[in-house]
């Protein structure tokens, strides 16, 4: 299984999940991202989940934990690329991403983080 690549781009960490992840792989991705936030001036984390065809209670919970952990370190998390049928399944299961923002794609996520930064600095 390919490792999830993490790119750093002007204060934003971008993780693009490549294929279905097991629970331990999701946990490891969460730890890696949180570790990198702590020793860099990171203001945002973007996680691309468009390759996932299932986001179940464990994955959702882990994403929420990541988002609230990142927030404690001053970074905002944006989850991008949730597929239509995955979104519907999550809603029917009662799963929400309360601690993360969502965006359609990477561009929208970066725009979101930019405008948030603009609001904060202005």
């Amino acid at each position: 299984m390919p490792e999830t690549p993490i790119l750093a781009h002007s204060g934003v960490l971008i993780a693009s999940i490549q294929s279905a992840l097991s629970d331990s792989e999701i946990l490891s991705l969460r730890s890696q991202l949180l570790a990198r936030i702590s020793h860099k001036s990171v203001r945002g984390v973007v996680i691309d989940v468009s390759a996932l065809d299932v986001l179940d209670s464990f994955a959702t919970r882990t994403l929420n934990e990541l988002a609230s952990g990142a927030r404690l370190r001053g970074a905002q998390t944006v989850v991008v690329g949730i597929q239509p049928d995955v979104a519907l399944s999550m809603v029917l299961l009662g799963l929400t991403l309360r601690d993360a923002e969502t965006a359609l794609d990477l561009d929208a996520a970066l725009g979101l983080l930019e405008s948030a930064a603009g609001r904060r600095d202005g």
Binding site: V80, P84, A87, L88, V91, L97, L104, A108, A109
Partner: peptide
């Protein structure tokens, strides 16, 4: 409500 919540998850 479900539609709106799912749309929000997709970023809309």
């Amino acid at each position: 409500l479900q539609t709106m919540t799912a749309a929000r998850l997709m970023g809309a």
